[in-house]
Nucleic acid binder design. Structure first.
Lengths: 214, 214
DNA sequence: CAACTAAACGTACGACCGTTCGTGCTTTTG
DNA sequence: CAAAAGCACGAACGGTCGTACGTTTAGTTG
């Protein structure tokens, strides 16, 4: 009676297609980090990967669907590189610290050659209504929620230790998550522009910002 | 003996050209704030303004020179709207406060329809070496220097009032200017994405950030 | 007045864009 | 084994891009 769960298909045609789509989308994320999602072109991706333009076009159908696939590929890559390792640490201050450290690694040894994918593409699409903007906004929301959850947990833990005197209560989780992310994005821009002080400067800012809960 | 200073020409042909270049570049800044400098097209600007494509092309010669003119037009508009009014206040905390207030006005009642011109275009060009990137980077540097100078002055003034006990000495001017700008840019993104809490949230952050010198 | 300059235009060029169509080829399905 | 499905391709389409050339018109300069 129960409908079979969405099983992983063994159809080698579909597997081949999925593999190709992933390769193309992942490379598209690299390109888009440097030149923007709107600057992406099907022909460019095809020649980069030694494929035919029409082959790439058929796999995605539409440029917008290609862009959506690229956005999703970027998300997966970021989760693998930064988020998943941090989930090994206990929720709260420790996981938050792991996320921050992970982000520094992400910025120092760029996962995408053009730097942060979202710092590059949110400004590109934040004034263009449509599915791509919606997807990017949703991903940003997930990231901010992830940060805010860890901050909230860390604040609660700190309050337990010193119920009445802690300054941690001053930290609004949602506000601090936004604040943290803004500093990250600004750091990415400074790095892109060749500012050698970008990383140590940001370390100081963030240490100060999170001092009440660490 | 002294070479005549660069007099303002009265040649009406040149005046006409300069006027046309300004009109086009200023409109280009509006377009670029929403769709990016790289998305700008000569034909688009021409039809927007009821001109011929070749006319626009001849006035600027090259797309890159058009982009540089647009960047300069954006700068002038921003100086008129935000910087110059603040210069009426005395250097230091007062001028800094005026700059912050001016920026809130700039964000609340957008000078450019796509939001902050630099928040939109620095990420677009920060990975593309060339004159346009250089110009944008230089403008960002001027802005950060302007902020840092006011912070430094405010810190010095505060230190005079309470030579030994002030917490204002903790504020590194350069670092705080970067910090302030990062929050501005993050706020612009949040506004663009329709976050209704963006402005009050940022007001809280900045009040807190500048508390030691106000 | 004649020579010159700059703005503005129409036209045309080659390059690239996204998309569509028709065609092989491999793999799965009935 | 035949039919269907999905990937990959070459070719071609209409459209836009940046740029270049030649011409006309308005304004300046000798």
């Amino acid at each position: 009676m129960s409908p079979s769960p969405p099983r992983a298909t063994t159809d080698q045609r579909l597997l081949r297609g999925a593999r190709a789509r992933w390769t193309i989308a992942r490379h598209g994320a690299d390109v888009a980090s440097a030149e923007g999602l709107s600057g992406l072109s099907i022909g460019r991706l095809a020649t980069d990967l030694g494929l035919s333009k029409s082959g790439v076009a058929t796999l995605f159908g539409t440029k917008e669907q290609l862009q959506l696939a690229v956005v999703e590929a970027a998300r997966k890559a970021y989760v693998d590189a930064v988020v998943r390792p941090a989930l090994a640490h206990p929720a709260g201050a420790a996981r938050l610290r792991a996320l921050v450290d992970g982000w520094f690694g992400y910025a120092e040894q760029p996962l995408f050659p053009g730097g942060c994918f979202w710092a590059a593409n949110l400004p590109d699409f934040d004034s263009r209504p449509g599915p791509v903007r919606d997807a990017l906004r949703a991903q940003r929301g997930e990231w901010l929620t992830l940060l805010a959850d860890q901050i909230r947990r860390a604040v609660d833990d700190t309050a337990d230790d010193a119920p009445t005197t802690g300054a941690a209560g001053e930290l609004d989780p949602e506000l601090t998550a936004f604040h943290l992310d803004a500093v990250f994005v600004g750091t990415n821009t400074a790095l892109r522009l060749g500012d050698p002080n970008a990383l140590p400067r940001t370390r100081r800012i963030i240490e100060n910002l999170l001092a009440p809960i660490t």
